[in-house]
Design a protein around this nucleic acid. Structure first.
Lengths: 210, 210
DNA sequence: AATATATCCTTCATTTTTCACTCGACAAAT
DNA sequence: ATTTGTCGAGTGAAAAATGAAGGATATATT
């Protein structure tokens, strides 16, 4: 796993710069300079700027899905709701561990390009699969399908907002931006929402839902 | 208020292209072509590509804040919670009416540039002001300040997710992407969350919050 | 009313800048 | 000695910006 240091340096530099300035906003020269390597190295390792992007993103998602699947399989003995909690925790954890790439990719995903569409069908479809089934199962039969979709989007929103509103988060969420602490607390916030939502789905307390 | 049609055409074209391909991903030629005007017109009206961006964004936010302030002042007779609901409704409404710019700006805001920072202090600070005070007031005294911040971020997240996960929304939220219908339904989803959250803040039902 | 003047808008041609990528030489490692 | 990695210079294309000139329209002057 110990790769060429230059290659790693390039990826690291690219992650940071893409995160700060976006893909098109960053030039290969910028990356090379930050990584303290020659510009040509980038072509050498990744063929092109686009190649570098694809390498980084693919890598990110492969590990991402692997991590999710792992948790998914390890939590078969838990109740559905606990299983979902575990998945959420794993996801936030992973994203926090790969903070810059997460922010960058999330932003880039909102564009309209071939690359994005490929990523979506290849990786995001799977992520969706793991979450959606279990979430819908938890919601039960009482709610309208329509409304369930909205709730699901709400959940997905919670899984990404820290990586989109990251400026707000930094400013608002006082002091402790230690990753571990953040994961713990934020997962808790989602958990509270989730428990309430599922409870509503079971017909308790919430009246006349659509 | 009836401005030069060419100028308007440029802004419209730019909004669409920035939305699809991002700021750096779009060339002024693309914009000029789509708007059916000469390339130099853009320099003429906005000095530069950057100038065009700033004009569009500034304009967007001026109106945005104006709309919020209007609602804010018109709802003084309502209870705090209803006032907040009104504000949320207004915000979603506005964003939906300026869909492409909203998506684009939201994405761009997650970058790290001087321009973004300026926008943040100039406009987003005010938006924050209107929402935060009232939201915190509603939450009461029981919750830890820390936790309130998280809840507030959760709220802000809900106000933007449709404009960041717009690909997901299009795919998932079945059929009806009619703006009016969407506003109505989505505001309802947020309302449910809000009512629950406020209720928890008052100490009902939710136990051992932090 | 007719002409002159100024202002606003558009176009074309050109320059300047930026950027991704290539090439061939050189060095290090195996 | 062959592979692997590094480097500087260079190329061509793309894109932004400029500037001068031409038209249109409105305003002012006689």
């Amino acid at each position: 796993m110990k790769q060429n240091p230059s290659k790693q340096k390039v990826i690291k530099a690219a992650s940071t710069l893409f995160f700060q300035k976006g893909f098109h906003g960053t030039s290969v020269r910028d990356i090379a300079e930050r990584a303290s390597v020659n510009v040509s190295s980038i072509s050498y390792y990744f063929n092109s700027k686009q190649g570098l992007l694809e390498y980084a993103v693919t890598n990110y998602y492969e590990n991402y899905l692997f991590t999710i699947e792992k948790t998914f399989n390890e939590t078969n003995l838990l109740t559905p709701i606990d299983k979902l909690h575990s998945l959420i925790s794993t996801i936030i954890q992973y994203k926090q561990n790969n903070y810059q790439l997460t922010c960058f990719i999330q932003r880039e995903l909102s564009l309209d390009s071939v690359f994005v569409r490929e990523m979506t069908v290849t990786y995001l479809a799977k992520e969706n699969f793991y979450l959606k089934n279990i979430f819908f199962e938890l919601l039960g039969e009482r709610l309208k399908n329509d409304y369930k979709q909205y709730l699901f989007m709400q959940l997905k929103g919670m899984l990404i907002t820290p990586y989109i509103l990251h400026n707000d988060w930094k400013n608002q969420v006082v002091g402790d931006y230690s990753h571990q602490l953040f994961v713990k607390k934020y997962v808790r916030v989602i958990k509270d929402w989730l428990d309430f939502t599922v409870m509503s789905g079971e017909g308790i307390k919430r009246k006349a839902v659509y």
